[in-house]
Nucleic acid binder design. Structure first.
Lengths: 253, 253
DNA sequence: ACAAAAGTGTTCTTTGTACACCCATGT
DNA sequence: ACATGGGTGTACAAAGAACACTTTTGT
């Protein structure tokens, strides 16, 4: 399989996906990086090759046939999700496409076209060493990035602009929360992710419609968040929250 | 060069660009379609393969070397611009990336990943038969599309949403105008492109900053647009107008 | 004079936000 | 009681747009 057995009449670029995954911890927006084991060594965004089939397989799938048993990416988003699982052992919510990057000089190893995505997650969705080829992963402050390989610094810049520009899509930020969370936690997380102070009750009005059907009635869970002589916060369940994007995502020129 | 085979250890998808080009004529938003000569026959968006080099060429270019003499796309946007020139003989202004489309079943001929763009132009920028492989091109009402090949109908739908969502970026719509144009013409064109009625003077206030330095002083050109017993309109020059996008473009999930 | 173009001032609406203040509920 | 969470009402600011009106500039 490692022999060069696939040939084409014209040269083709490699197609990859790269994903900028963000979380909020310690009131700081952080991004997931992986350490590359091959050259160019250093830190980079998680991502990897779009796994396509050979001619026979692709023709069958395009015609509506069953997916093959081997590793196979039906969609670009599926590729991104698979790479996140295999490389970093993480499982994100919504994946938002940033766009395609394909300049000839973006990777010195050859011609690569990458489709970039960004996503939010909570740190608890990280299963260390879940995948067999899991590499060294690291959470890094989004404001103090190390040097990144390829054009990944530019991709991160695009992602940060995308997040900022969608600060009114309040529901998106629910992806940053843990499985069960309270509104005060959400308020702090939202402020960290958007880098903007927002009045408690104004944000509350905006996010409540998404949480209407996600209230956890059990009194048991309160013990974890209820510390002190005061009213305990309402606990919401992430799965039951409606994470609906109102508009689409980002542009590139 | 076209006889050579190119070998890879893993199968790779074809990478293409497709472009949804819009213009306004007869108070109607129209889109540029080409007629396919090979199967699947029918109408489709202009577009084509990203022309990459062989290993040697790409390594040289990625390392900062000079571009090769053969046909070569340094960037995805450059590929889109070249295809528009060759296939349709048109020359557009700003190209806006919609995103990448890569589902395995989007093209029954095999695995294709396409990067979609949209653009505005004026009909006069169309040079019929400019390119050697120019195909049959046709302007088609954007509201009454024929059946399109592949997933191009979906791409057009995304493009129309992108245009509508950016109606506040008034300056973008200058790309729809001819080389010399007047504000009354712009007003009609803008209304047709956005499908919304807008007060004459409100739009005027918004677009004037972009036209400040584009006034054509010559009295000669007036003859073309000045018909009647009234004050002649100010003529603006498209090249000198500031076509600056305030925000980026579109998203995809 | 007249008609279209150009320009100005005002009002209205929407939307996101802050702010002030209420009640609720636990120790 | 009191401290924090939850919730409501109101005011404010900015942006986009409509509307009314004036001025300009040609035949």
């Amino acid at each position: 399989m490692s022999e060069e057995k696939h040939w084409y009449a014209f040269p083709r670029p490699s197609v990859t996906t790269d994903i900028a995954v963000f979380t909020v911890d310690d009131a700081q927006l952080q991004i997931l990086l992986i350490e590359r084991s091959e050259a160019p060594k250093g830190w980079a965004l998680p991502g990897g090759f779009l796994q396509v089939g050979d001619r026979r397989t692709e023709l069958a799938v395009a015609g509506g046939g069953a997916p093959p048993q081997e590793k196979f990416d039906f969609s670009l988003e599926g590729c991104a999700r698979r790479e996140l699982r295999e490389e970093a052992g993480v499982d994100v919510g919504a994946l938002h496409q940033l766009g395609a990057f394909g300049d000839a000089d973006r990777d010195a190893r050859g011609r690569y076209v990458t489709v970039a995505y960004w996503a939010f997650m909570h740190k608890s969705q990280h299963q260390p060493k879940a995948g067999s080829d899991a590499k060294t992963v690291r959470w890094c402050d989004a404001t103090a990035l190390p040097d990144l390989a390829f054009d990944h610094a530019e991709i991160v810049k695009h992602a940060l602009r995308a997040i900022a520009s969608r600060h009114l899509d309040t529901g998106l930020f629910i992806d940053l929360m843990s499985q069960q969370f309270t509104y005060p936690e959400f308020h702090r997380t939202y402020e960290a992710a958007t880098h903007r102070a927002i009045d408690r009750s104004s944000l509350h009005r905006r996010v409540l419609p998404f949480l209407r059907d996600a209230v956890v009635d059990d009194a048991q869970v309160d013990l974890a968040v209820h510390r002190g002589a005061h009213r305990p916060p309402t606990v919401y369940d992430k799965t039951r929250a409606v994470i609906a994007a109102t508009a689409p995502d980002e542009p590139r020129s």
